[in-house]
Design a protein around this nucleic acid. Sequence first.
DNA 1: ACCCAGGCGGGCG
DNA 2: CGCCCGCATGGG
Length: 290
Amino acid sequence: MKKNEILVNKFNLKYTFESGQPITFFGEYDINKNKLIYTSRITQINLRLKGSTKNAIIEFSSINGRRTRSEIIKKFRLKDNLERIYDIINTDEHMDGAIRKYNGMRVTLNDPWETTLCFVVSQFNNMKRIRSIIKNIIHSFGSPVYNKDDKLMYYTFPNAEILSEVKVKELMDCGAGFRSKYIIEAAKYYRDIINLKRMDKLKYPELKEELMSIEGIGDKVADCIALMGYGRLEAFPIDVWIKRSIERLYFKNRNLSIKEIHKFAEDRWGNFAGFAQQYVFWYGRNIIGR
DNA sequence: ACCCAGGCGGGCG
DNA sequence: CGCCCGCATGGG
């Protein structure tokens, strides 16, 4: 293995990128080259995927220091044993189909603040516009970084201190609409929090409750943040697609409450419900449609 | 024109 | 609790 390569058993960058995770909203992915540039608050990841899904090779270039390898392993949770997780969540024909179809899709682990901003913006919104709003915010309040690989300028993700002090109008100008005040509220929370490690130590139910105390963060967004910002794989975000999919696939279209769906997911997929969610979500959107 | 988008807060019974 | 409404904005 070369020093700028990582070998991974099962990794599909396309599905991981497209499936509505934070990288979907502010990564730059070149589908033809299977190449990703991802500019975070503190780091820029530059990688290209070679090989097959089963035996993938991540080729990366170091941007700011030698820790790029460990950043990538952490970000894409490459230590997750997908075979083992698939065995656990493959409870029925639908999950089996989703796993086959989206084999190698990873659940990513992202910076908590970046994840929070992304999913606050996501509410009552669509993928394309979420991406556009996040991009506008990054371009307005982030700092430029030159990428010598493709000779283009990128912007770092603005930190909470900066966004806690912007005016509502400035975010409205980014297209954030009624979510603008929620973004500022969340920024104040992440600015004021003394110790993010405290959040890390909370158990999932307490973490979710803490997140929901922020104005603009409800059940679904809190679960997205718990899952993709804090790595709580038991979190099961329920949006319109998941609701539709679960009702259709498992309950003959019977109308279910959010509470009932949480119970169903917990009983069925337990500590890996979040993984199952990511597969059902993408499967439901692409296969079932509306 | 009309409808919808990875929801949430608030008000009501 | 459950239900219903308004909410900014751009794309189909």
